[in-house]
Nucleic acid binder design. Sequence first.
DNA 1: TACGGTGATGACAGCGACTGACATCACGGT
DNA 2: ACCGTGATGTCAGTCGCTGTCATCACCGTA
Lengths: 187, 187
Amino acid sequence: MGRWEPDAQGRMARAALELYAERGYEQTTVQDIAERAGVTERTYFRYFADKREVLFDGAHTLERLAVAGVAEAPADAGPLDAAGAGVVRGCDALADRYERARTRAGVVAANPGLQERELLKMAALGTAVAAALRERGVAAPAAALAAEAAVAAFRVGFEAWVASDGGRGLDDHVRAALADLRALAAG
Amino acid sequence: MGRWEPDAQGRMARAALELYAERGYEQTTVQDIAERAGVTERTYFRYFADKREVLFDGAHTLERLAVAGVAEAPADAGPLDAAGAGVVRGCDALADRYERARTRAGVVAANPGLQERELLKMAALGTAVAAALRERGVAAPAAALAAEAAVAAFRVGFEAWVASDGGRGLDDHVRAALADLRALAAG
DNA sequence: TACGGTGATGACAGCGACTGACATCACGGT
DNA sequence: ACCGTGATGTCAGTCGCTGTCATCACCGTA
């Protein structure tokens, strides 16, 4: 693999997921990833902030979709409805990547450090959704709570999805979690 | 400070918070903390797993209180009520430490790495509360969602507390967030 | 008092994550 | 053929973190 092969970032992301899944996150060095991708360690750190970030380069897409979903929710939808519409829209970012999502979820579940990063991304998603809600005129505290609740439902739905056989879509699971949440709060 | 002065852990925790607040987390080395506490770097890592953990040694107390609060909630309380009672009970762990909590919150807010750790602790709190709810006979999915929601309310309440002048107690803010959450879900 | 066991600490070497500085390379335009 | 530009390689260095072993203070016991 030459020095100027295209898609260095994609090669590194794939190499990292493979290695993390094969031998574990801690047993993989950044140099291992760089070698498999045909670059040097220094180049890795030009694309990814640290050893973990390579697993989270799709987070931005998810966030962008969710914000769009909130903005385009019906005008008469309440805060929780709008936030729910956002995270359901975000599901499009992962819809056709069930296998990869499953592998990745297994890697993350096996390492607390990676869980930390995932939680930070989810928190950022919540912040973005909350901002989108305020854009709709929702008051700040209600926006924060509705966003947090919707993101919690997304997480629960995501976990159910990767634990399933993939027969139903991620969005189905997330919608079910949102419905559960409403039932809970009412009870 | 001699080699065998008592309360090495407490000294290190105080030194770390001071240094993180004075010059920032990244500008502080573990050796700086160890020196101010009168120990060596190696001793630091015998008490704390890493450079961040020194700010989170109270998390266990919070978790234990919350679990007790859930277990002792009225038998006829719903899942969200019981989870809410848990996080309200957890407030006792911080009730008389407003100043320290404020300083610590500022340090954490200034560093994404510390936010990650805080999120992990909150997730662990949610897991523990969910387990306590299942102990009460709540079904697994409902327990997870109720716990997540209650922890979200705790976080919102905590943020309001440290942003306030400390006139009202942390538990007041958390109770208000829980009430907001109910109103939201109903709307 | 002398002695030995025990737990905490210090000293040291080493790996790996991450960064800054500078050289080098491929490519496109002139 | 030349040059500017951006991506990459090379190198040195700091810091987080760990394993290993020696050392120290304390405590019980003879």
